[in-house]
Nucleic acid binder design. Structure first.
Lengths: 118, 118
DNA sequence: CCAATTGTTCAATAACTTTTGAACTAAGGA
DNA sequence: TCCTTAGTTCAAAAGTTATTGAACAATTGG
C-alpha cells in the first residue's frame, strides 16, 4: 500500500454513494467487480477518461474507501475493497454492481477500437 | 400525483446513487423508510434544512424516482417508491437503508426540541 | 372575503466537482 | 545513462449543486 486510504470504519456511507453516483466511477467499479482477483492498472480505464482525469476519479474511489491502490513498480494495482465494504455496508456493493451490470447507459471499459497495424 | 415523476424504467442508477449521496437526502429517505406507510409531509423535515432548501432536496428525490410526492390540499404526501426501486435495483434500497440506520453521523429527523408552551 | 398554512419558484451567490494541459516523479529497459 | 512508460500534481477554467431570501400560488379555516 502506498497512497492514503481510509480505514474500514472511516468509510462513510454518503461519501461512498456520492462517489458511486458518477458514471465513470461506477463503470470502473463494475469492471473491477467483473475482473475481481485480476490485478488492474489505471491504463485499463483510458477509454473512460483522460489520464489526468482518471487519476482524479481513481483518487476519489480510493479516498472514499471503495478501492485500494498499491504502487507496484511504475504501475498501480487497483482492487475493490470488497470485504471492508461488505462488513460496513452489507449487501450494498453487490446490489450496486448487479444494478450497474444491467445498465446499458454506463460507459463500457475495454471497448475502444484497437488500431490494426498497417 | 401532481408533480413530474420519472417512470420506473426511467430511473437511473447513477442518478439515484448521487441523490442518495447527500446526508440531508439520505436522512429523509431513512426516515421515510422507518415510517413506511405513514404519509409524510415536508414540514416533518424542517429540522434538516430551510423550507426552500427542503423543497429543493425533495424535488431532487422525486426527480430521481426515489420518492413520490402527491399534492393533498395544501400539503404534499411524500412516499418512498420502494416497489419501483426494488424492481429496478433489487436489494439496493434495503442495503442503503440498513447502512443509513447504523450511521451516527447522519442528521436525525424529529429531534429538534419542541417548545414547551408557557 | 381574509388570513394563515404549506409549499413552490426565481434569481443570486456560494461552494463544490469535474475536466484540462503542462510540468513533474519514479521505475525499468536498452 | 538516456529514454520510455505509468501515473501524479498543480493551477486554471468550466460546469454543477446547494443554499439563501423574497415573492408567489393554492388551499383551508374563521
Amino acid at each position: 500500500m502506498s497512497l492514503p486510504h481510509p480505514t474500514a470504519d472511516q468509510i462513510s456511507l454518503p461519501i461512498v454513494l456520492a462517489v458511486l453516483g458518477d458514471p465513470t466511477r461506477l463503470s470502473i467499479v463494475r469492471y473491477l467487480a467483473r475482473k475481481e482477483g485480476v490485478p488492474m492498472n489505471c491504463s485499463k480505464f483510458l477509454d473512460l477518461a483522460s489520464k489526468t482525469n482518471l487519476s482524479y476519479h481513481l483518487a476519489k474511489l480510493r479516498e472514499a474507501g471503495v478501492t485500494r491502490s498499491e504502487a507496484v513498480g511504475t504501475s498501480r494495482l487497483i482492487t475493490l475493497r470488497r470485504d471492508d465494504l461488505d462488513r460496513r455496508f452489507p449487501g450494498l456493493l453487490d446490489s450496486v454492481i448487479a444494478a450497474a451490470d444491467g445498465d446499458k447507459d454506463l460507459p463500457a471499459v475495454g471497448t475502444a477500437e484497437v488500431e490494426v497495424s498497417a
